[in-house]
Structures are given as structure tokens and as C-alpha cells.
Amino acid sequence: MEAALWIVRGAAVYAIIGVFFSVWFVTRGIGRVDPATTGSTWGFRAMITPACCALWPLAFFWLLRGRSWKGSES
């Protein structure tokens, strides 16, 4: 019971941080990790928001790095 409570609380905190981060990321930060997003539509930004919420530590890492992994395979 106590463990279940902490799991749900932890998930909620993670999700809340994700929501705030992703709102900033899709409106401002995204251009720093993928220049191809410049001029992209709001529909596109809304569409990638759920994954930004879920993967916000990764998106944050990309921001610190200055770019994503795009093109790193070629």
C-alpha cells in the first residue's frame, strides 16, 4: 500500500515535470536540437508533445548536448 502510493506519487511528479518541460521545449527549445523544426506547424508541435512529456530526460540531455542524435548513423 505504502509502496503503491509512492509509485503513483513518483509517476505524478515525473509527469508534471514532463508537462512543464515539454510546453517550453516544443515552443522554444526544440529548434536547438533539430533545426529542421524551424517553421514547423503548431499541429506538429502538439503531436510530439506527449512523447516529450514521457521522454523529457532525453530531450533535456539533447538540449545540454546542443543537438539530438539525428544523422549520427550516416
Binding site: D34, I48, P50, S68, W69, K70, S72
Partner: peptide, 15 residues
């Protein structure tokens, strides 16, 4: 996770 990352943006940036 699959649905949320289905857009080409994630395909390109995750590799």
C-alpha cells in the same frame, strides 16, 4: 511510447 514516438521527428532524432 510507440504511438507517441510515431512521428517522423522522433524517427529522425532517435535515429
Amino acid at each position: 511510447l510507440m504511438a507517441a514516438t510515431s512521428h517522423d521527428f522522433w524517427l529522425a532524432n532517435l535515429t
